Simulated assay, not measured.
Amino acid sequence: MKNFNGTIQENEQFISAENRGLNYGDALFETMKYASGKLLFWEDHYFRLMASMRIMRMEIPMNFTMEFLEDEILKTLEANALKDDTARIKLLVYREEGGYYTPESNDVGFVISTNKLENTEYHLNTGHYEVDLFKDYYVSPSLLSTLKSNNKALHVVGSIYAKENGLNNCLILNTDKQIVEALNGNLFLVKDKTIKTPPLADGCLKGVMRQQILELGKSLEDFTIEEASISPFELQKADELFITNVITGIQPISQYRKKTFSSTIGEKLIINLNEKILA
C-alpha cells in the first residue's frame, strides 16, 4: 500500500496520466532506510529535500515539517506491517499537474512507498564487484545535477550498458571528463593516506551517505579526507575504491579493468557507520 497525499491507498492506480513527474520528470525523491525503529539520517534527508524543492521552485507547503513527513512515513510503514522491521522508503514529491513545460502551479503532492529489507546493520559485500566507465553520455555539472530528481535517463541507460557488459556498475563522467559518481551512489577513492570523493561542483549527487562518510573519515587516524576531482587515470593507481548510498552503506569495488582493489578502509568505515546508527 502507498501513501498518496496523506491517504493510504490499496489500489495503486492513482497517478494521473497528466502527472508532471511522469510527463516531464518534474519530481524529486528521497530514498531512505528505516531500522531499529527510526529513520536513519532523517534530518539530512529532510533538509536536502527542502533545499532541492527551493532549487526546483516548488512551493513548500506550510505543513511540510520534519514531524509531519516523518509521521506520514511511519503511517505508511504501519499500513504495510513494517514498523517493527527494516525497510526501504521512497518519498516522492511532484509538482501538481497543469501546463506543459511551464507549470500552471508550483503546488506539490507526494507519494510514499515502502519495501522490506533484510539487514538492520550495514554489511560489507567483499565479493567480486566489477566496474568500468560509461562514456556514451556525460553529466553537465550544475546545481540540477546534484539533485535526486526523476531526470535519471543517463543512469538508466548506463545501468542497461552495465548489464549488457556483465558489469556490476559503471562510473560516469562529467563534460570535463572527470569522474562524477557511480550509477547508484557516490564514489570514494583511497590512495596512500588520502581518501577523496568528487566535489559537488563536479556535478555529483549531494548524497546523504556521502556526507556520513566524509564525517566518519575524519576520525580515521593518519588519514586525510577531501573533496577533490578524480581523473580516470587515477583509478588504476588507487589502493581502494568504494561506492556509497543509504541502502547499501558501502560497496567496495573489487575490479576496474585489470586492476584489483582491497577493502581495508571500507571495512573500518562500515564498523564506524554501524556504531553511529545503533548508538
Rank of each mutant, 00 (worst) to 15 (best):
S219P: 00
H155D: 05
K191C: 09
T146M: 05
K193H: 14
P199R: 05
L167N: 09
Q236A: 11
V208W: 01
S219A: 14
N184F: 08
K177E: 13
D202K: 06
E234I: 06
G185K: 04
Q212Y: 01
V157K: 10
F223H: 02
N165K: 14
F188W: 12
L216R: 03
D202I: 06
L154N: 06
N174P: 09
A182R: 01
A201P: 02
G158H: 07
L173S: 07
I225L: 08
T146H: 03
N151Y: 03
I160W: 00
P232D: 07
E181P: 02
D176R: 14
L189S: 04
T194W: 00
T244K: 01
K191Q: 15
P232M: 07
K191Y: 02
N150H: 15
T244L: 03
N165C: 06
G158D: 11
D222Y: 04
E227Y: 10
D192C: 04
F242M: 14
K148P: 15
M209V: 13
V190K: 07
N174T: 10
Q211V: 01
L189Y: 06
S149V: 09
I213F: 10
D239L: 06
K152A: 14
D176G: 04
A228V: 14
T244Y: 13
T175P: 13
L214E: 09
T224D: 07
K191T: 11
K237M: 13
V246C: 11
L200M: 10
D176C: 01
N184G: 09
K218A: 10
L183I: 13
V156M: 14
L189D: 09
I179H: 08
Y161Q: 07
F233I: 12
L147H: 11
G185F: 09
V157I: 15
R210P: 08
Y161E: 07
F242C: 08
V208A: 11
I160V: 15
D202P: 00
K193L: 15
K193E: 12
I230W: 00
E240F: 05
L173W: 10
K218G: 11
N165L: 11
S159L: 03
E226Y: 00
L235T: 03
L144M: 11
A201W: 00
P232A: 02
N184W: 04
I179Y: 01
E227W: 03
R210D: 07
L200A: 04
N151W: 08
N169F: 06
H155Q: 15
T224R: 14
A228I: 11
N151L: 13
I172P: 05
P232C: 12
A153L: 15
E215K: 15
L200Q: 05
A182W: 02
I213T: 06
L154P: 09
N174V: 05
G185E: 07
V156K: 00
K237A: 13
Y161I: 14
C204Y: 00
L183F: 11
F223L: 08
D222P: 01
E227R: 03
N169T: 02
